[in-house]
Amino acid sequence: MGEKLSIPKGYRQTKQRKAILDILEKAEFPIHAEDIFLRLKEGGIDISLSTIYRNLEMLTKEGLVVKSYMMNEDKARFALPDKKNYLVCEKCGKIVIIDNCPFDKFKEELIEVHGFDITGHSIEVYGICPECQKKSE
């Protein structure tokens, strides 16, 4: 696990918290708490789903984890901040992380026009992936 993913000061460095961050670091895209639960169980870590949710809320509050809701889903997904911008296929559900964030250029304009102190963002873009486009032809 990378140095940037350490548990914030004031919180205990538990095996469970470290394991949750490790799962999120390995995840290719934002995942549900239930997915984290299953992956931890498969890895032999005994943890309850409610403990995962409590830890995810703390990690979100501390800025180590980003919480988002995808269109047509009623459960939150969680990811590390570098995986918070993504494309979602409306047909198959494929998720592709956007590495180069286009928001940085737009951020300065928002600050100038609206006077907001921007503290964070996430971008979800919906469409049809190339594979589903081919199937539709």
Rank of each mutant, 00 (worst) to 15 (best):
N55T: 12
L87W: 05
K94W: 08
C92N: 09
E73Y: 13
Y69K: 15
F78N: 01
A79T: 10
E34A: 10
K91P: 00
C101I: 11
S50W: 11
A76V: 08
M70K: 12
E90Y: 01
A33G: 12
N55G: 03
N85C: 13
L87I: 09
L49A: 07
S68F: 07
R39A: 13
A76G: 06
S48C: 06
L56C: 03
C101Q: 08
E34T: 12
S50P: 06
S48K: 13
N85G: 07
T51A: 09
G93R: 03
F78S: 02
F106K: 11
L40Q: 04
I45H: 09
A76L: 07
L49V: 10
I98H: 01
I97S: 02
K83N: 00
R54N: 13
D104G: 10
L87D: 07
M58D: 00
C101M: 09
I45G: 09
D99F: 01
V96D: 12
K83M: 02
A79V: 06
E62H: 14
Y53F: 12
D104N: 11
S50H: 11
V65Y: 01
L110A: 15
K105S: 13
E42V: 07
D74M: 06
N55L: 02
D82E: 14
N55A: 03
C92D: 08
N100G: 09
E62R: 15
D82G: 09
I98W: 01
T60D: 00
N100Y: 07
I95V: 15
H114A: 10
N85F: 04
P81M: 11
D74V: 10
L87C: 05
G44V: 06
V88L: 09
I98P: 01
G63V: 01
L64D: 00
A33M: 04
L80P: 06
F78M: 06
D35Q: 15
L110V: 15
M71R: 11
S68Y: 07
K41V: 13
E73R: 14
D82A: 12
E90G: 11
K105E: 10
K61V: 03
M70E: 13
I47H: 08
R54Y: 13
F37C: 06
G44L: 01
M71Y: 02
E108S: 13
F106H: 03
I98Y: 02
V96W: 02
L80C: 04
F37S: 02
F103G: 08
M58P: 02
A33K: 12
L38Q: 09
D74E: 10
S50D: 14
G43D: 05
M71Q: 13
K75F: 06
C92M: 10
F103N: 11
S48I: 01
D104C: 15
A76F: 12
I111T: 14
L87N: 12
L59F: 07
R39C: 05
A79Q: 05
K61G: 02
I111M: 04
E34V: 10
F103D: 05
V96H: 03
K84Y: 06
K41M: 04
K105D: 05
M71K: 11
Y86N: 05
D104K: 14
D46N: 11
A79D: 00
D82Q: 13
D99W: 04
L56D: 00
S48H: 08
G43C: 04
T60R: 11
D82L: 14
G44I: 03
D35Y: 11
D74K: 10
D82W: 15
I111N: 04
K105A: 10
F103L: 13
K83S: 01
L64Q: 01
F103E: 05
V113S: 08
P102R: 14
